[in-house]
Simulated scan of single mutants.
Amino acid sequence: MAVLRRLTQARRSPSERTALAGEAAAEAAEAALRAEPQPDAGTGGPAAEGAEDRPGKAPKAPAGNHTPEPDDPRAAAFFDCDNTILRGAAIFYLGVGLYRRGFLTRRDIARFAWQQAWFRLNGAEDPDHISDAQHTALGIVAGKSTADLEVLCEEVFEQVVADKIWPGTRALVQMHQDAGQRVWLVTAAPLEVARVIAGRLGMTGALGTVAEAEGGRYTGRLVGELLHGPAKAAAVRALARREHLDLDRCAAYSDSANDIPMLSLVGHPYVVNPDGALRRHARAQGWRVRDFRTGRKAARVGLPAAVAVGVLAGATAAAVALHRRRSCA
Rank of each mutant, 00 (worst) to 15 (best):
R221S: 11
E16I: 03
Q116M: 12
T146P: 10
D53A: 15
A124F: 12
A2F: 02
R5D: 04
A252D: 11
S131T: 15
P73G: 00
T219L: 10
Y253Q: 04
R221Q: 12
H176P: 06
C250W: 14
R290D: 06
H66Y: 03
F92Y: 13
A284F: 09
D259F: 08
A25E: 05
R170F: 05
G220H: 07
D248V: 07
R325E: 11
V156N: 07
L152Q: 01
L207G: 10
E225I: 00
W184R: 06
N65R: 13
M203L: 14
D255G: 00
G102K: 01
L172D: 03
N65H: 14
L149F: 13
A318S: 14
H228I: 03
L20E: 01
P55Y: 01
P70C: 04
G44E: 06
S145W: 05
R74P: 06
A213P: 12
T67M: 14
D163I: 02
L4M: 11
R120C: 13
A113G: 14
L227I: 02
T105C: 02
A282F: 02
Q116P: 03
E214N: 07
R106N: 13
E158R: 15
D148T: 05
F78M: 08
E155Q: 03
P73T: 11
S327C: 11
V186N: 06
R195I: 04
E69T: 13
T316S: 13
R325L: 11
T18W: 09
A233D: 08
S13G: 07
Q285Y: 04
A211T: 15
V161Y: 04
G202V: 00
G42I: 11
T169R: 05
A329V: 02
A257E: 11
G143F: 03
R237S: 15
A213N: 14
K60S: 14
P70A: 01
G216R: 09
E27H: 04
A142N: 02
R106V: 06
A213L: 10
G50T: 00
T316M: 13
S13C: 01
S15C: 06
V311Q: 06
R326I: 07
V173I: 15
F103I: 05
P127H: 04
A318I: 08
A28N: 00
D40V: 08
A234C: 08
A211Y: 15
V156R: 12
A26P: 04
T18P: 03
P59K: 05
G50V: 01
D40C: 12
V271Y: 00
L227Q: 08
D259M: 05
Y93T: 15
D246G: 11
L226S: 02
R293M: 02
R170N: 01
P70V: 07
A137S: 09
R283V: 04
S15P: 00
M203T: 08
D259L: 10
R249F: 06
A299N: 05
P230A: 15
L312W: 04
V186A: 08
Q285F: 01
H244F: 10
N65W: 07
F78H: 09
Y93C: 12
T84Y: 03
Q115I: 02
W287M: 07
R288H: 10
R100Q: 15
G302Y: 09
A329I: 00
L4D: 10
E69V: 11
N122V: 01
Y99I: 14
A233T: 10
A257L: 05
P68A: 03
S256Y: 05
G267T: 09
R17D: 14
E150Y: 12
A329Y: 00
F92P: 00
L303S: 03
Q9Y: 09
A28C: 00
A58R: 15
G310R: 03
V3G: 07
